[in-house]
Design a protein around this nucleic acid. Sequence first.
DNA 1: CGCGACGTTGATTTGCCTCAACGATTGTGG
DNA 2: CCACAATCGTTGAGGCAAATCAACGTCGCG
Lengths: 191, 191
Amino acid sequence: MAEELIRHLQKHIAADAEDARQIVPFFRTVPLQKKEALLAEGQLCRYHYFVAKGCLRMYFVNGKGMEQTIHFAIENWWITDYPAFQHRAAASFHIQAIEPSEVLAIDYASQEDLFREFPQMERYFRLIFQRAYSAAQLRIRYLYDFSREEFYDHFSTHFPEFIQRVPQYLLASYLNMTPEYLSEIRSKKRS
Amino acid sequence: MAEELIRHLQKHIAADAEDARQIVPFFRTVPLQKKEALLAEGQLCRYHYFVAKGCLRMYFVNGKGMEQTIHFAIENWWITDYPAFQHRAAASFHIQAIEPSEVLAIDYASQEDLFREFPQMERYFRLIFQRAYSAAQLRIRYLYDFSREEFYDHFSTHFPEFIQRVPQYLLASYLNMTPEYLSEIRSKKRS
DNA sequence: CGCGACGTTGATTTGCCTCAACGATTGTGG
DNA sequence: CCACAATCGTTGAGGCAAATCAACGTCGCG
């Protein structure tokens, strides 16, 4: 499953087969079943994860005990609770597999070692974070701008494959609305 | 005003006086009056900005013609329309000074040159973006979780100095509510 | 088959917006 | 330095998007 990561690295930085051979051992492969948890709120967040295969979600539990999904991550995405990972602190999010998945995990110290031995990796992650922050900026704009219905329209035109891939109550939670209201919106569209 | 940047660099990476002397010329100093625009929607977004002094805001104009503030940036923050900057495309946000300010600007090509000549700068920006993304992740959580009133409470306990520094209608716009409603919330607190 | 998870529908409620009117404060030109 | 305008903050009435609550149909799976 490391090939997926290698291919992704090579899309962003110069890394030959020899580099690849040396970089891979920094990571640990973690297979996941459907619904299996990768990280739970309150746990020490030790790892940064690369999704090699499958689909995960990140969520938190709000004051009323509802699970609020704030991210989906599929192949080639990096994911973790960054605030917690950076400070090697307790996570305030959960991460869970939606499908049978496989992720590559690297802990904080190994990541620092990796930067020391392969300075191109600083560039790689600079690019990854830059793009992630960039996407977050857009995302925040949408959260300010869109009604729930516009949010659904936007999501279903930009990520139609997702509508198939995740159950509707998770989609509702990601779109920050109740399953009931999503159901209402969808029935309106059909007619 | 470059000293502010140097000091910030040295907090994150090893950079001696000689490095500093060479890094500074990559930037252009831009003084700004209160309410002066630094970037407007539709303009090509060429620069990445470091706030050396003052306070800026980033906003967009929504479908109803209202200005929606999505960020404030004060001393030591980097700001730009990242989606546009990365693709050297037209901005979809405005950036404007709230107070008399001073920013350091670097264009895309110079930033790439800077990375080539000073590889530590990749690390510096990796750290900056990582922290920014981290903050965005928390921000998104709050946007999902908080009512308008909770948002106000959270903001006023975490950034009390800001409540003084920015006019109330901008604060309302940042908190994603109408000035009328913010006024109502505040009067409720007083009594 | 039967149970629990998921999706749907409808009635009611509420958080927040819209619109309008009116003080208070700020700024500006004469 | 005052007069007047513009900008900003407040208050209240009415309305709407979306939540809550409850009940019921359906499907996948042990």
